[in-house]
């Protein structure tokens, strides 16, 4: 059992939880993930580590309430326990030798992009962060990104905050204005990562993306998380979750990600009804 020591709503659909997990906190690195299970009938879901504090023995997760499991998780208050919490899984972000990086985050993906930006900043790398949200109400982690980036571009789809437009607009502008990046790290919805990669490919800038496919064990046993990368099948849990974005088959990843949409919808309604009944 893993205690929730802090819970905070970052916006109407995104929650931050700080969880007591000292063994994971000691080992966690940006880019890695954990798998959790809320209760006995619960499914195992992967969530990327959003922050960690080895001294305090805590791991932070940030999640969007999208399905039955995240809804159940969000129903747990401070002081309550998560049944299973295992990690850190996957490979860490490669930061060696990077001098200047554009970190691109979209929506709740910013929760995963932030520890990467923070780590790069702490290593003396120049970080330009480009973060995109649908509207002002959904903006998260603005202060955190500001603290570790020499430049922050805030984008919203509707223009209600920052600049109106997509993250790719801002990235293109920066590149066109002469900024030279060793690497672009893009983390967000598949469709966003796909278009960031299409853009950076034109300019020949290496781009790393973080994939979050459906997963069960997270240790290489089930193969449910397989992706096509450069024409080869890779397992996101042991070979990733980060990959060379120019080689990832995003269309296949999107199809695979939608495999259980009908089931998830039904489960979400069930769980919603249960919660309404109290």
């Amino acid at each position: 059992m893993y205690k929730i020591v802090k819970k905070e709503l970052l916006n109407s659909t995104v929650t931050r939880m700080v969880v007591e997990a000292p063994n994971i906190a000691r080992k966690a690195e940006p880019g890695q993930f954990i798998i959790l299970r809320v209760d006995e009938n619960g499914e195992r879901i992967p969530l990327t580590v959003a922050d960690y504090d080895a001294a305090a023995g805590t791991v932070t997760i940030i999640f969007q309430i999208v399905g039955a499991t995240t809804q159940k998780l969000n129903a747990l208050e401070e002081g309550k326990y998560i049944l299973d919490f295992v990690g850190p899984l996957g490979r860490k972000t490669e930061t060696d030798g990077l001098k200047k990086v554009a970190v691109v985050g979209g929506g709740v993906g910013c929760a995963i992009a932030y520890p990467v930006a923070k780590k790069l900043g702490s290593l003396g790398c120049e970080v330009h962060s480009i973060v995109g949200f649908r509207n002002k109400d959904l903006v998260i982690l603005e202060k955190e990104f500001e603290a570790c980036s020499s430049k922050l571009c805030m984008m919203t789809d509707d223009g209600s905050y920052g600049t109106k437009g997509l993250v790719t607009n801002a990235l293109k502008e920066l590149i066109e204005s002469g900024e030279k990046y060793d690497e672009v790290i893009a983390i967000g919805p598949l469709i966003m990562m796909k278009f960031v990669c299409a853009l950076t490919k034109e300019y020949g800038i290496k781009t790393v993306v973080s994939m979050n496919p459906i997963m069960i064990d997270g240790t290489g046993m089930c193969g449910g998380c397989r992706l096509t990368v450069g024409g080869e099948t890779k397992f996101a849990c042991v070979d990733g979750p980060e990959f060379d974005g120019h080689l990832v088959d995003f269309d296949e990843a999107m199809t695979r990600g939608s495999m259980y949409r009908g089931f998830e919808q039904k489960k979400r309604e069930e769980s919603c009804n249960l919660m309404k009944q109290g």
Binding site: E43, I216, D217, M221, C222, G223, G224, L227, R256, M259
Partner: peptide, 19 residues
């Protein structure tokens, strides 16, 4: 092999047995 509806036996059985 990466189409929806293709499982490894490990995944299929884990979903059924463990989960």
């Amino acid at each position: 092999e990466n189409l929806n509806g293709v499982y490894s036996a490990n995944e299929f059985l884990t979903r059924v047995n463990l989960m």
